[in-house]
């Protein structure tokens, strides 16, 4: 029964990874941008929530909308002001630009909030669980996290599949130049994509902040989990990202079950195995030649 519990906890952890990775997946899909600051941006969201929650003395869940808006605006300005220019200069400059951004965010957070660990307190919900049996319990908070991930992914899929702007995202992802000739302003579209990406990162950042404590330097470690989820699921597939995140979560909880230090290792080994045997990922978008 302990194993079953581990797998369930792993799946729920995977929901959090997917929530976190969805924005990364979107950005890469639309503009082939490898965002190395993704983890640090999630921390920026967590600290923004901390700043809002502190003086108002409210539940961090209530800060999410404000943090989303804040990061969305930041994302749009970042894209139009910096990353669009980097993208014009070739494939390497955007990677360097986001790497630089990662360093800048880490140092600004260190300057503003010190290296001490901080946490967001969501109250009793963090510890409450649905008890299924002696050894089986599903925590409310992980459950809410996973449901949120599913809702976010569903929302993104509907947006991409059913709306005018969503079609422009897919067209640009398939062939940017042809999309421009259809009258799509790619600079605006990229700005919008980054805004949406960072709005989802805001949700993930606050949820992770509630789940664990955080300090300014943990961003890059988080980034690895997000990339592992995206790549295992298959680039360009949002639902693949959910499955990839869940596989990573399960591998980590099972690894931790064997020995407390083996969690991250087990996840990385699974990732390497996927890279070795199915490098395109489990649900890679089909490529027609």
């Amino acid at each position: 029964m302990a194993w079953v519990n581990d797998i369930i906890q792993g799946i729920l952890l995977g929901g959090l990874y997917a929530l976190f990775a969805a924005g990364l997946s979107l950005i890469f899909g639309v503009m082939r941008l490898v965002n190395l600051a993704h983890g640090d941006l999630s921390l920026l969201a967590a600290y923004a929530a901390l700043v809002i929650v502190g003086p108002l003395d409210i539940n961090p869940f209530l800060s999410i909308l404000a943090v989303m808006l804040l990061l969305a605006v930041f994302g749009y300005v970042l894209q139009r002001g910096l990353l669009n220019h980097a993208l014009d200069a070739g494939p390497l400059p955007p990677i360097l630009a986001t790497f630089g951004l990662s360093v800048v965010i880490q140092n600004l957070l260190l300057e503003g909030f010190s290296a001490d660990s901080k946490g967001l307190d969501a109250g009793r919900i963090e510890h409450q669980a649905i008890t299924l049996s002696d050894q089986l319990a599903i925590g409310w908070f992980p459950l809410i996290t996973t449901l949120t991930a599913v809702v976010v992914l569903l929302g993104l899929s509907l947006f991409l599949g059913r709306t005018r702007m969503g079609r422009a995202f897919r067209a640009t992802s398939d062939n940017q130049q042809a999309a421009q000739l259809m009258g799509i302003d790619n600079r605006y579209l990229y700005g919008l994509a980054m805004a949406i990406s960072l709005a989802t990162v805001a949700i993930a950042g606050v949820f992770i902040g509630i789940r664990t404590t955080f300090s300014p330097s943990v961003g890059p470690a988080r980034l690895i989990f997000a990339y592992e989820s995206v790549i295992m699921g298959g680039l360009g597939s949002l639902w693949g990202t959910l499955v990839g995140g869940m596989l990573l979560g399960v591998a980590q909880t099972l690894g931790s079950h064997l020995s407390p230090g083996w969690g991250v290792l087990a996840g990385n080994l699974l990732f390497l195995a996927v890279l070795a045997f199915r490098p395109q990922g489990l649900f890679a978008k089909q490529v027609h030649e």
Binding site: R167, D174, A178, I184
Partner: peptide, 20 residues
């Protein structure tokens, strides 16, 4: 250079909505 992941109608729809 079709948008390969989209249907023929969706391809044309992108031109129809954004071009016009």
């Amino acid at each position: 250079r079709p948008f390969e992941g989209m249907t023929v109608f969706e391809n044309v729809l992108v031109g129809g909505t954004f071009g016009r």
